[in-house]
Design a protein around this nucleic acid. Structure first.
Lengths: 146, 146
DNA sequence: ATGAGATGTAATAATTAATATTACAACAAA
DNA sequence: TTTGTTGTAATATTAATTATTACATCTCAT
């Protein structure tokens, strides 16, 4: 399976918000057109990012703004904002109330440590990726566009 | 979202197969009882593990056996055996044939490098975890069971 | 103050992905 | 040649994700 693409949409929105700063009011309708997602999905994502202190959203008049420097916003913060449980349990474990079988009784515990290691390595990598770096890459791409 | 739990079931099966070596014939029915999964699911998983050269499965008479030393079987091998595309694209990217919006046109490329980094870090960690180490942990748990 | 354009959120629907089931052909060995 | 098994296709079920509808609430310009 695949990690929800909400994360990708969120990054899209954040880059958009950054690029539009002082230029245009960034509404959920606008972002929904740019991302191809439903405006309610966008509003939910923005709402999560807002709760995490990454952006502010103006009620009524509308418009989203970053409330941190892009260099201080990491992919991990974004991901955690969207997923209430973070990366915990990102690899599913089957439920086996496995009767007498000792493997069934212990498999959950056996997998715990390996899966935590994996979660931690994802965390570390996500933490090393900033919105700033992605914005930089975006600008590089713009330069060489035809 | 969460990575398919096929991986967990596969590890369960492999530990079971290892523990049962020279003791019992490990059939898909037996594994399905221990894991709580449908026997066809088990057969599909075993089939994938077989194609990857991790186990042998006796046609007709039945029974699965490891065909490598557990120390030489890594979690990455197991995962790759199960998922045809490996970890590629584990984090989904939304499709936005984004008209004129430059963010929409470039978001895919912007996310490519960060997501590859994440995939690589998962790969490295999975590669450092062997079936042997999980079997060892399993034995430790058995020691201290009531 | 009020109308236009937003957000926030609940409820529901539609879609997609994961898992389970049924069915049966092919196989191996007693 | 019967019994128990694997391999696999086809289908059904279930669960998760994404989309939609609906509407209360808010802000500001007029």
């Amino acid at each position: 399976m695949q990690i929800s693409m909400k994360c990708s949409v969120a990054v899209h929105c954040l880059i958009f918000i950054y690029e539009a700063r002082d230029k245009a009011k960034v509404t959920s309708t606008l972002l929904s057109k740019s991302t191809g997602c439903n405006p309610v999905i966008i509003r939910n994502i923005l709402s999560s990012l807002k709760k995490a202190g990454i952006i502010t959203v103006a009620r009524g008049s509308g418009g989203a703004k970053l409330c941190k420097n892009p260099a201080e916003i990491t992919l991990l913060q974004i991901y955690n904002a969207l997923e209430p449980d973070g990366l915990k349990g990102i690899i599913g474990i089957h439920q086996c109330y496995g009767l007498k079988c000792p493997v069934a009784q212990n498999i959950h515990k056996v997998l715990l440590a390996p899966y935590c290691k994996i979660e931690d390595s994802i965390k570390n990598t996500m933490n090393s990726i900033t919105l700033q770096s992605m914005i930089n890459d975006f600008h590089e791409l713009l330069k060489y566009a035809d």
